[in-house]
Amino acid sequence: MHISEGVLSGPVIATGFALAAIGTVIGLKKLDYERIPRAGVLSASFFIASLIHVPIGPSSVHLILNGIIGLLLGWAAFPAILVALTLQAIFFQFGGITTLGVNTVNMALPAVLCYYMFGRLIIRKGNLIESIAAFACGFISVFMSAIMVGLSLMFTEENFFDVATLVVAAHIPVMIIEGIIAVFCVAFLKKVQPSMLPGYIVPQRVFGIDPEIERR
């Protein structure tokens, strides 16, 4: 869901950079120096996970997972996605310098919004609510990104309406797949490493043994 170089107008590019800068500054503020290595390695895993191609009928789509990035990183999703997009530009030349701001905001803002909307619902005990929230997180994050890509195009040039509609429509199957993937992925993380999810309450220590250490 990258917007290519050369498409966007000056004002859209400038707005994108301004918003991306604000988000990145907040994200970095919330990230202490001691949490940077963990966030950095996690960001690398998001980059690799986005290379996974999931089959859909005769074609395939690659995972975006920005909803899960939001759940796991909160505001730090901004620097994480900025870094990932920069590396994509260097390795594959998907996008370049001027679209970095807009593309970061289009991916990271939905991630942060999902963190606030679904972060607390996901850790609940109720299996159904949790699954619905996880599906919504995966679905809505991609939906919002597609809408924002569409809006970036529309603010550039009104005649982009058809292209913008096509972008959103083409991503509907992706949204559904991302929703399904999010349900399974959240359920998996809850079983294996629940402390990674937001709102996780550390269980009481029993006889001085840290349950977290035990589990590892």
Binding site: L42, S45, V54, V183, F188, L189
Partner: peptide, 14 residues
């Protein structure tokens, strides 16, 4: 694929 991605995240975090 979801479990695979999840496992990647767990390993990355640790």
């Amino acid at each position: 694929y979801a479990y695979l991605a999840g496992m990647l995240f767990v390993r990355a975090s640790v």
